[in-house]
Write a protein that binds this DNA or RNA. Structure first.
Lengths: 73, 73
DNA sequence: GATAGAGTTATCATATATGATAACCACTTA
DNA sequence: TAAGTGGTTATCATATATGATAACTCTATC
């Protein structure tokens, strides 16, 4: 699996979990203390984000860190 | 749990898994295509590394991505 | 058709990850 | 003692993440 795909898959995971909670990108971004545009970038797999950004998101979604990285590799 | 601790814990996870496989930092770094000094930085929690770096390490250790992020949060 | 909410994209400045190199310490072994 | 292995730390240039802003589309609702 190449790099682009990894980021796209993880972004899709985040989006799916967010939507399952009925939360908007706007709100999720706010809980993470950044702008919705940045969340869009992450969910689309358009940035190779860091562990701490992943952590902020996991906290905001109230799920364990590892829960965002299911890739069926 | 604060940011510093997160990175230190994940670094410790990587180190523990690497050692369980009897692999040196040198070798693991080589499998990831970077220098041992960078692996040392990661294992010590001294850098907020990216998803793709995590992915390289998970591939090199032959474990799923999520396996590196167990934090008992 | 005007307003508002949700999401996307482009752009920018700034901070920091990345990859590399080199110097260093500790330990082992020839 | 010297050489090799494993790991750490500092430093550097370059690439890119981050956070913010603004402009835009689309959809729904008033």
């Amino acid at each position: 699996m190449n790099s682009e795909i990894i980021l796209i898959k993880i972004g899709a995971n985040i989006k799916a979990i967010r939507e399952a909670q009925g939360m908007s990108q706007q709100i999720l971004a706010a809980k993470c203390n950044f702008e919705k545009a940045n969340m869009s970038r992450i969910e689309a797999g358009r940035t190779n984000f860091t562990i701490l950004t992943l952590y902020k998101i996991s906290k905001a979604l109230n799920i364990p860190l590892a829960g965002l990285l299911e890739l069926d590799e």
